[in-house]
Design a protein around this nucleic acid. Structure first.
Lengths: 354, 354
DNA sequence: GTTAGCACTCAATTAATTGGAGTGCTAATA
DNA sequence: TATTAGCACTCCAATTAATTGAGTGCTAAC
């Protein structure tokens, strides 16, 4: 009655909690007798039955068929995640196995994170590379490769490097190349991709004079190189874990899920959605069943965390599994990895041997 | 009797052929009555039965259980592939859908090839990036990025580009950098990775004088960049197709296969093996059942083709599916793609619009 | 408000039944 | 001697029937 929430009194909450916990463990519909013993409420199964009937009416649990036990509904899971689940706030340092090897290559790290998470949770995981669209150009260089090709090397703020080969009609002499280099650098250095607008471009081409076509190509290449790579940098692991859960592997949705993880294109919308959805203070989002951003995952639960490298550069870590998911463990893991990733690539790393 | 092969007379061959073709189509064990009608031999089912008994004794076909039809054994498939199958030698040009969009990026092309093949065959496919270890260095450039970093850009013969960021203690002035560039290029241009031996290195370091540590780092970076990428460049597609075939998806081997395609590490040995196994004049290898290079695929058939970019640079295209595989179609597709890939990256490409 | 008791329901397991495709063998046929 | 028709036999696969048991809802007593 005096509980903060109107629908459920404390006893109902406890019973719901017990039902869900039990179901998470066993995966079997749970009956009144089980609860009667499982809890410390000292109530008979008959009483539990009455309460369960109420809980079902309120939509928190479901009976797969008459004369079966109850399983949590989406609403039930939601309530569990929001109110019942106790988040274990272990300190990060406790978990030795989680220490990420600091490698030069971001790619390696992210792959490793995906794998680590999959191993720890037994669900399917994905990690998106950070979206560097606010990142700035640090340095551009055109080099003569052979008579028909110029190589454009672009270095970004975070020391990410992009290459683009450019075909040219006729060979350029060194002097022109040097001039173009100078021109491009003075015009573009310090700008982010968004900041390169039509004005900048027009001005640049004007200054380039007879070589404006080359400049145009460089700009195309720039946009090209940066977009293309951002588009689809998602690392996944443990997709086959999906098959471990009968509630998923049975239906054809399992195949769709596996395909999604193989093609990765569909996962992109999951990432963007989750990046947009950051209301919670923890930076962790939970999608249950139909709440999931993409239809393919309507029979799953999806938990995502957004890691933040500072300056608006963000990426996503995600876990996809059955609704009957060990939310506590999953969120714990995510929180942990998130805190380790936050800032890892921008932080100075002086402790390396080489 | 006067047949080139000792075990089977012509009639038995025809019957075996009919059995296998029928089984490839239907996936069901095939009985004597079916064959009696299917072929133009005009034999009664009883006669066929006798012949089938012989074929079984010789090991070409198998009876799943008494009172079932026969299915091909591994030996049967092998005979089919080697002697019975007719390879349709369509000209390449016929197949419009196969035209590969010529993109700048090798990666894109290979991904596309994998996908194309998976779509055309409904099996799982993999494409390995070519091993460029015999490829030569075309051009090296060190650039000043900031006070603590130098960027090494290495362009190979085939216009492949590698980057490696190098940490330096203290900033180098432009002149030194220019000198180093000159030195590195004159020493290393035209060499393949194998050709850079200790002598070259010692000499190079000597010439570099006080900057020999930098040179060392560049060489490390070089080896590093080139090895690392060669290690594990395998593109896959259609792995989930495996689930379409009951004989695979039933057992747990399906999960193992899917994992192998997800992790990709295991596939590496498949690639190396198939590169080693090139006896056939067509450049295509067929592994049936236990012949497969890796244990995970013992219940499958694996067909690989080796494409050749010239100068010893080679890669593999592979298909993994059930033993009951449409070998003709698969080999046709592989031959086709192989011929399109052969030399594609080294050939001059003048027909592009830009 | 709680509980014991009882009749009822329904999935899941196991057992029994049947149908049919296919074989192997034998004896007749060309 | 090779081929074929005929028949008894085998065994999987699919169907139906019987059994079990966990769990419920309801009622009446505490």
């Amino acid at each position: 009655m005096e509980n903060k929430n109107f629908e459920l009194d404390e006893r109902k909450e406890k019973i719901l909690d017990a039902i869900i916990r039990n179901y998470l463990e066993t995966g079997e519909p749970v009956g009144s007798r089980t609860i009667s013993k499982y809890t410390d409420l000292n109530l008979s199964s008959a009483t539990i039955r009455n309460e369960m009937a109420d809980l079902e009416e309120l939509g928190y649990i479901i009976q797969p068929h008459t004369s079966a036990g109850r399983i949590p509904s989406d609403k039930g899971y939601r309530f569990y995640v929001d109110h019942l689940m106790q988040e274990k706030d272990r300190e990060v340092t406790e978990m030795k196995e989680f220490v990420i090897e600091k490698t030069e290559k971001m790619e390696q790290v992210l792959k490793q994170v995906a794998k680590l998470l999959a191993n720890n949770t037994n669900y399917a995981t994905l990690v998106s590379a950070p979206a560097y669209n606010t990142n700035k150009i640090k340095f551009i260089q055109l080099s003569h490769v052979d008579d028909e090709h110029i190589l454009a090397v672009i270095v970004m703020n975070n020391n990410m490097v992009k290459n683009q080969m450019i075909d040219v009609e006729s060979s350029l002499d060194n002097e022109t190349l040097l001039k173009l280099n100078l021109l491009l650098n003075s015009a573009l250095n310090g700008l982010s991709i968004q900041e390169i607008n039509l004005g900048t471009i027009a001005k640049l081409k004007e200054q380039a004079g007879s070589h404006s076509t080359i400049v145009g190509e460089v700009l195309d290449a720039l946009a090209n190189a940066l977009n293309e790579n951002e588009d689809l940098q998602i690392y996944t692991s443990g997709a086959t874990n999906i098959l471990k859960y009968p509630e998923l592997s049975g239906s054809e949705s399992a195949t769709n899920l596996l395909s999604a993880f193989e093609e990765k294109e569909e996962l992109l919308s999951l990432v963007t959605e989750s990046l947009a959805d950051q209301e919670s203070e923890t930076g962790i989002q939970v999608y249950i069943g139909n709440e999931a951003p993409i239809q393919t995952m309507k029979d799953c639960s999806v938990v995502t965390a957004t890691y933040d490298l500072g300056e608006g550069v963000k990426g996503t870590i995600g876990i996809v599994g059955p609704k009957r998911m060990d939310y506590e463990n999953v969120m714990d893991n995510l929180k942990n990895l998130k805190s380790q990733l936050d800032g890892i690539f921008t932080k100075p790393r002086k402790d390396e041997k080489s």
